[in-house]
Write a protein that binds this DNA or RNA. Sequence first.
DNA 1: TGTATACTCTATAATCTCTATATAGTCAAT
DNA 2: ATTGACTATATAGAGATTATAGAGTATACA
Lengths: 146, 146
Amino acid sequence: MDISQKCQYGLRAVFELSLRKGFGPTKIGEIAKAQAIPMKFLELILGELKHGGFVESRRGVNGGYMLALEPDQLTAGQIITYIDGPVMPVKCVAAGGASECSLKNCVFMDMWTRARDAVAEVYNGTTFQDLVDKRQAESYVSDFCI
Amino acid sequence: MDISQKCQYGLRAVFELSLRKGFGPTKIGEIAKAQAIPMKFLELILGELKHGGFVESRRGVNGGYMLALEPDQLTAGQIITYIDGPVMPVKCVAAGGASECSLKNCVFMDMWTRARDAVAEVYNGTTFQDLVDKRQAESYVSDFCI
DNA sequence: TGTATACTCTATAATCTCTATATAGTCAAT
DNA sequence: ATTGACTATATAGAGATTATAGAGTATACA
């Protein structure tokens, strides 16, 4: 249930591509700079996200990455699950339901399930369009104040 | 936010002591056997829980551990926070609020905060009396069926 | 007062995962 | 054909987690 550094980088990269949706490919180096991500590590992550069908790439001189989906059709939960695997507080309540719990009738199972579902609801209820809107709202306030 | 094995052992040990509240001390070996916990590892865990004031101990021949609090006054959240530290999906939203996030105006912060709060509500809302009641309800059904 | 019992404390080993980098390779535009 | 940028695989390093070992200390009871 902990979000790995790799996954946070992935989320930020997808967010950056959401901001630039419709403006053509963005180079790994640009994403890395904009989101403060180690570039070689980001290469790995974008490779994975491409296999997952979340981003598209173009090679060569004017190449780079593009978001493959519409920002309002993609949730943080999808990226998190793809990179970090199923969201769960303990192994026993993995999304598949495959219980590795050695205890029969574990009284904690219900608590773990409810915690998992509560978190999943938050992540699955957050689209990248939501995040883009939030960023733009912040920018407006910032502009207004300065 | 992931619950460590150590913490799960701790929760199970406290649950076992909740079942036996009022019946005098329980030996480490008994707890270890009842809850399938490696005994030497459990010694460490109970030592920590004692320092936290959650359990009391008595040494010597008829020694063992006892729950120091009433089961309805002790929540899973308290044990989890004590053993694993603050519940949080990412470092940026540690309970203290000390942000280690290198990004200013991180658009994900609100999502992490809501996830953290949702989980904390589940854990803090679960008392060991709730768990004891659940076990007893199961036993009743079990007896009734057999 | 001695002995068995069971808790207490510190150190340390063995994994394991995560993070990050290195290197060589492939594709596309000019 | 040459340059720029993505692709793939391997691997090293750090750090946390899990677990065990062993010596020490307090208590009950004969």
